Computed example of a mutant assay.
Amino acid sequence: MSEAQQHQQLLELHNQMFMSPQDFSYRWGLSYEELAKICAISKSTAYHWLGGQASRREAGLPYQRIMAVADFLFTNAEVINPLLEQWHNSQPPN
Score class of each variant (00 low, 15 high):
Gly60Phe: 03
Pro92Gln: 09
Ser42Ala: 04
Met17Phe: 03
Ala36Val: 03
Glu85Tyr: 05
Gln5Ser: 14
Ser90Asp: 11
Pro21His: 04
Gly60Ser: 14
Trp49Leu: 02
Ser55Val: 10
Tyr32Pro: 05
Leu11Thr: 14
Thr45Leu: 14
Pro93Leu: 10
Lys43Gln: 12
Val79Leu: 13
Ile38Glu: 04
Gln16Gly: 14
Leu10Gln: 14
Ala46Thr: 02
Ile80Ser: 05
Pro62Met: 08
Gln53Tyr: 07
Phe24Lys: 05
Glu34Gly: 04
Thr75Arg: 12
Asn81Thr: 13
Ala4Glu: 11
Asp23His: 13
Ile38Cys: 01
Pro82Glu: 00
Glu12Arg: 13
Ala68Phe: 04
Arg27Asn: 10
Phe24Tyr: 08
Thr45Ser: 10
Leu50Met: 10
Phe18His: 12
Phe24Ser: 03
Phe72Thr: 08
Leu13His: 11
Leu61His: 09
Tyr63Ile: 04
Ala36Phe: 02
Ser2Val: 05
Thr75Met: 11
Leu73Arg: 06
Ile80Lys: 03
Tyr47Met: 10
Gln16Leu: 15
His88Glu: 00
Ser25Val: 00
Trp28Pro: 03
Val69His: 01
Cys39Ala: 11
Gln53Ala: 15
Arg57Tyr: 12
Gln64Val: 04
Glu33Pro: 02
Asn76Ser: 06
Met67Cys: 04
Phe18Pro: 01
Glu12Pro: 06
Phe72Leu: 13
Tyr26Arg: 14
Ala40His: 09
Pro92Glu: 00
Pro93Trp: 01
Ala70Lys: 04
Ala54Ser: 14
Ser42Asn: 00
Glu34Arg: 02
Leu13Arg: 14
Phe24Val: 05
Arg57Lys: 14
Ala36Gln: 01
Trp87Thr: 08
Leu84Phe: 09
